[in-house]
Design a binder for these strands. Structure first.
Length: 529
RNA sequence: CGCGGGAUAGAGCAGUUGGCAGCUCGCCAGGCCCAUAACCUGGAGGUCGCCGGUUCGAGUCCGGCUCCCGCAACCA
């Protein structure tokens, strides 16, 4: 069985999850559900980054003074949020877990053995905003371009450094050879420029006396490991690095790291460089022919504004998705996030747009189609799925061929992370065919509500094809709107729990609706707001 | 020359490999009655930010310019 390992970033716990975190996590959840449905064995990891000094600051702000208590409380909040929203993660990692510390230590020693860690007295400029040192070439007018208002601190500290510069050429070659390694293309170009012009040795430790959080450097407790160096290793920890050799062998490398566009440098440059280094002295990180096992793909989504303004606590437009669930349902929010904003691009989240999508796409187009198809079947065929005797093309919507084309197109788009295109195709069809809009039009064209008086056999064909089409749509959109799919299948007179055990190819084959099955009284999928 | 994104119909957006400008909403006029005041048809509405170049042909490729936005306090 093929495996699929997808990860989200681990988030800082300096607040509760908001709609931005949900965006990344939902996208990963959709992919996990999609690949499971396709028969792959899936590992989907989420988690929290607990070794950051930012958490210490957040704790102080929250009026707490015991770091462990604070971290425990926050981890619970985050885990509960994903549980409440039905995120189907397989592992929720906290980077304070002992197994992670063990993994980080093992990794550090491998990099050390490769000769890529050296201790250097750093005398230079430290930007508190960035939490990192700045080289002269990175400065603008003697200031950090990201934090021009902050005075740079002249710091003199003994730190360990990672010889990232050793891997510059290898990384550039890797990206050229595997263009899919970084996506979307705009980000790939950005990363190439970054590696070529700015990718230098990283300071990967801080003096412990200044750090409450963090993992100590092996054999040197006076230093603590830089939070990014530790955080990235979580992707290994969750699949058993250092604790479960066979699990690790099965799952690593990751098929996809999903990240926000703000952290691509760490994921697309530092992280693979770290692995290239560690792999030299850790066989678990190599293939049999000695090549480093790097993640297969890293994809950065864009950011969205809320009502045209950036997400900001001081503006007060932070949205906890759970506040929207009672009104719209989580499926509609999932649909909206993925349909509205092309994945990888920036976008805007607005309640008006959400309502518009809810009313038009979900309620009027999808919900209404299912409802009218079922209502007519019940009315004209004794509350059952009609038996289609003939198969006149004039009276058949979609059919075997259409279902196949739709599924093929959908799968291609989801695999390519083009969620918006995948959904657009379901609604608008392929070249004006097989879409939900066309299905509603098909009813107008064939007028089953009139035809029933003269040609009931034709109406049976029409309605059967519509019900069957709805069934197939339900299984296609199921990874994105699981609750809706379940309701649709149930309304079509089938037992969702039983059906979902069938393999996807069967589910998507024409003919899954059995004639003469009782159709229950339909319930409105998306009630008026 | 800090990095990156964007400018396409009234609004919000799509336009992979250059080949007659698309989608949703909104608006106007009709139709229908199976359905969630839902559905369908037709219509109005764009010199694709500006200037130049390559080409038989450019929203799309190249060069330049203008304006907007994000990263610098919280913040994916």
């Amino acid at each position: 069985m093929k495996k699929y390992y997808v990860s989200t970033p681990i988030y800082y716990v300096n607040g509760s999850p908001h709609i931005g975190h949900v965006y990344t996590t939902v996208a990963a959840d959709v992919l996990a559900r999609f690949e499971r449905r396709r028969g792959k064995e899936v590992f989907f990891s989420v988690g929290v980054d607990e070794n950051s000094q930012k958490n210490v600051e957040a704790m102080a702000k929250a009026g707490d003074d015991n770091l462990q208590n604070y971290l425990d409380k926050m981890a619970q909040i985050w885990k509960t949020a994903w549980d409440d929203l039905g995120i189907t993660y397989d592992r929720f990692i906290r980077t304070t877990e002992p197994c992670h510390h063990a993994a980080v230590e093992r990794f550090w020693r491998a990099v050390l053995k490769s000769g890529d860690i050296y201790k250097g007295k750093y005398e230079g400029n430290y930007c508190t905003g960035c939490e990192s040192f700045k080289t002269d070439s990175e400065l603008a007018d003697g200031r950090c371009p990201l934090h021009p208002k902050d005075e740079l601190k002249a710091v003199s500290e003994e730190n360990y450094f990672f010889k990232a510069s050793n891997y510059r050429d290898e990384l550039l070659a890797l990206i050229d050879k595997h263009p899919e390694f970084v996506g979307p293309v705009a980000r790939k170009n950005e990363i190439k420029n970054y590696i070529r012009d700015h990718f230098q040795d990283f300071s990967i430790s801080r003096e412990s006396k200044n750090m409450e959080a963090g993992i100590p450097v092996p054999d040197d407790p006076s230093q603590k490991i830089y939070v990014w160096f530790d955080a990235l290793i979580n992707y290994l920890t969750v699949v058993g690095y250092g604790t479960d050799e066979s699990a690790f062998k099965q799952w690593w490398p990751a098929d996809l790291h999903l990240v926000g566009k703000d952290i691509i440098k760490f994921h697309c440059a530092l992280w693979p460089a770290m692995i290239l280094s560690a792999a030299k002295n850790d066989p678990a990180l190599r293939t049999e022919d000695g090549k480093a096992k790097l993640p297969k793909r890293i994809f950065a989504h864009g950011f969205f504004t809320i009502e045209g303004q950036k997400i900001s606590k001081s503006i007060g437009n932070i949205i906890d998705p759970r506040d929207l669930v009672p009104t719209y349902g989580f499926d509609a929010i999932r649909y909206f996030l993925l349909r509205e904003i092309p994945f990888g691009e920036d976008g805007d989240f607005s309640i008006d747009r959400l309502r518009e999508r809810y009313v038009h796409d979900l309620s009027n187009t999808l919900g209404n189609l299912l409802n009218r198809a079922i209502a007519m079947s019940r009315k004209y065929f004794d509350e059952k799925i009609p038996a289609a005797i003939s198969h006149s093309a004039n009276y058949t919507f979609a059919d075997e061929q259409g279902a196949k084309e739709l599924a093929k197109n959908f799968d291609k788009n989801i695999s390519g992370l083009s969620f918006d295109s995948a959904l657009e195709t379901i609604w608008n069809g392929i070249e004006g065919k097989y879409g939900l809009l066309q299905a509603n039009k098909f009813i107008e064209d064939t007028q089953p509500f009139k035809l029933i008086k003269t040609d009931p056999d034709a109406v049976a064909v029409i309605l059967y094809s519509l019900l069957e089409y709805c069934r197939i749509v339900a299984w296609l959109i199921e990874p994105i709107m699981p609750e809706t799919a379940k309701k649709m299948i149930t309304q079509l007179g089938q037992d969702f729990e039983i059906e979902q055990n069938r393999n996807r190819e069967d589910l998507l084959s024409w003919g899954g609706c059995k004639p003469n099955t009782d159709l229950p009284q339909p319930e409105v999928l998306f009630p008026p707001l």
